[in-house]
C-alpha cells in the first residue's frame, strides 16, 4: 500500500490560507423525537479531504447527509436549529432548489449502487437528466469521468455491458465516476470502502487522493488508518456531538480530548 501515510508531505503546503466551503453553525438535528446531532459547528475547507470518524451511531453519516439534503427523504427528519451554508448560501432556505444543490454536492454511498444499466448509461445518466442529448458531449464526459475515477482502462472495451457485472471495487469507482459526471464541486463519501477488500480499498483511496486537486471531499469512515491515510482534516464525533476537529496530524498524533485519544488508539469504538 503505497498510499502516503505522509503527514509531513501535507504540512509542506500551508502557503495559501484554507477557504471554508461548507459552514455548519450550531446545528441541531433530530429524527422525530430523538435528537441525532447536537450543536455542531464546523467549517469544511476547499479542496481538502475531511474525514469524519467515530463509533457507529455517532451521527457522522447523518451530518454528511445533511450536506446535500438526502435526509429530506426521511419524513420525520428535521433540522431543529442552526444552519448549513455552502458557498455562503443557506442550503435549508426555502428558495433553495434541492436538485441544484445535489448537482453541486455529489455523493458516494457505502454500498456501491450502480443502476441496472450499461456502464456507459450509468455515467451518462447524470447528463441525460439534465437534458444533454449530444452524443459526442456525452462520450466525452463519460470518458473523462471514467478516467477521473481511474476506471477507464479497465472498462473501455465493455462500456455497453451491464454495470452489475463489474467487481465490487470497480462498481464503487463507477459510482464515483457517476458522481463526477455531473461536475460537482463537493463530493460526499459515506464509508466508500467498507464493503471492499484491501486491494480495492487501496485503489479507491488512491483515487480520493487524486481527486483532492479538483474537489472538496468529505469522507465518513470507520477505519482510522484510512482517515489517517487520506484526509487533511479529521473530525471525531461521539454520541451526536463533535468532540474534536483538527488537522489529521493533530488528531492522530496529539489529540486534545481524552475520548479522541481513546478512540484513535483503538481503546473503544
Amino acid at each position: 500500500m503505497n498510499v502516503n501515510f505522509d503527514i509531513q508531505g501535507k504540512q509542506a503546503e500551508p502557503s495559501k490560507p484554507p477557504k471554508p466551503v461548507i459552514k455548519t453553525k450550531n446545528l441541531d438535528f433530530a429524527y422525530g423525537d430523538s435528537q441525532a446531532l447536537f450543536n455542531i459547528s464546523m467549517d469544511i475547507f476547499k479542496k481538502e479531504v475531511t474525514a469524519f470518524i467515530g463509533p457507529s451511531g455517532c451521527g457522522k453519516s447523518t451530518l454528511l447527509r445533511c450536506f446535500n439534503r438526502m435526509n429530506d427523504l426521511i419524513d420525520i427528519a428535521q433540522i431543529k436549529s442552526g444552519s448549513i451554508r455552502i458557498s455562503d448560501i443557506d442550503i435549508y432556505n426555502k428558495d433553495v432548489d434541492v436538485i441544484e444543490l445535489r448537482k453541486h454536492v455529489g455523493m458516494v454511498f457505502q454500498k456501491s449502487n450502480p443502476f441496472p444499466k450499461s456502464i456507459y448509461e450509468n455515467i451518462a445518466y447524470g447528463m441525460r437528466i439534465q437534458g444533454v442529448k449530444n452524443r459526442s458531449e456525452l462520450d466525452e464526459t463519460v470518458e473523462s469521468s471514467l478516467r477521473g475515477a481511474a476506471l477507464w482502462d479497465e472498462v473501455k472495451d465493455r462500456l455497453n455491458k451491464s454495470a452489475l457485472g463489474l467487481s465490487g471495487g470497480q462498481q464503487q469507482r463507477l459510482c464515483i465516476a457517476r458522481a463526477l459526471a455531473v461536475k460537482p464541486k463537493i463530493i460526499l463519501m459515506d464509508e466508500p470502502c467498507s464493503a471492499l477488500d484491501p486491494v480495492a480499498t487501496a485503489k479507491v483511496e488512491e483515487l480520493i487522493h487524486k481527486l483532492k486537486k479538483h474537489y472538496t471531499i468529505v469522507v465518513v469512515t470507520h477505519n482510522m488508518q484510512q482517515a489517517a491515510r487520506v484526509s487533511d482534516r479529521t473530525a471525531f464525533f461521539y454520541l451526536g456531538r463533535l468532540v474534536e476537529y483538527e488537522t489529521t496530524e493533530q488528531i492522530f498524533m496529539n489529540p486534545k480530548n481524552s475520548k479522541t485519544e481513546a478512540y484513535v488508539s483503538g481503546r473503544f469504538g
Partner: peptide, 14 residues
C-alpha cells in the same frame, strides 16, 4: 451568479 442579484444564487429555484 450569486453576486449578480441577491435573489438568485447558486442553488436558487429556476
Amino acid at each position: 451568479s450569486d453576486t449578480n442579484k441577491q435573489t438568485t444564487h447558486l442553488f436558487s429555484q429556476r
